[in-house]
Amino acid sequence: MSDLQTLYQTIILEHSKARHGAVDLAPLTDAVSRGAASGLRVAESHQINTTCGDEVTLRVSLGAGASPETDTPDSTAGASPDTAVSDLVWAGEGCSISQASASILTDTLRGLSVTEARALLENFREMLRSRGKIEPDEEILGDAAAFGGVSRYPARVKCAMLPWVAFEAALIEAESQ
């Protein structure tokens, strides 16, 4: 594979067009009250890459556990370790790397526990910041391992990280509710 093909792996180009999880976001207040009715804590984060103007708004819904149908949500407690990332949706525009990253993020993190999602995020971040030194672990990262080539292009790391930074911020916001 050429360097360029390593950067723009087929899976990335496909996701940049498929845009899993991309929606016309309803007003946040509506989503929050609708989520509260079903025991979900909803929050979002809007991130802009000022060097290129790419933007992503990522909305997280946190449920009580891996099987929300059987568990009773406990809205008074803080985020317990088995709190689940019940849903992820986003809106945004930008380069193929940032858009594919948002698409793959929703596929990868949806349904994980918050603890698992955080661990995966850290693994992803460490790999991206390694300037190509850390081989992506497909076992852990799944499709997100396709961004391994991005880490050799420091100017594009921000593009790939943008939705993940939005996820991180939205998660903290949702947990504080």
């Binding site: 360029l4 950067l7 290129c52 103007g53």
Partner: peptide
Amino acid sequence: HAHDVGQFLDDAGIAVRVG
């Protein structure tokens, strides 16, 4: 996206402005 265009051109040694 312009940044992807710029990346493709850069890979061929061509420096252009994107954004």
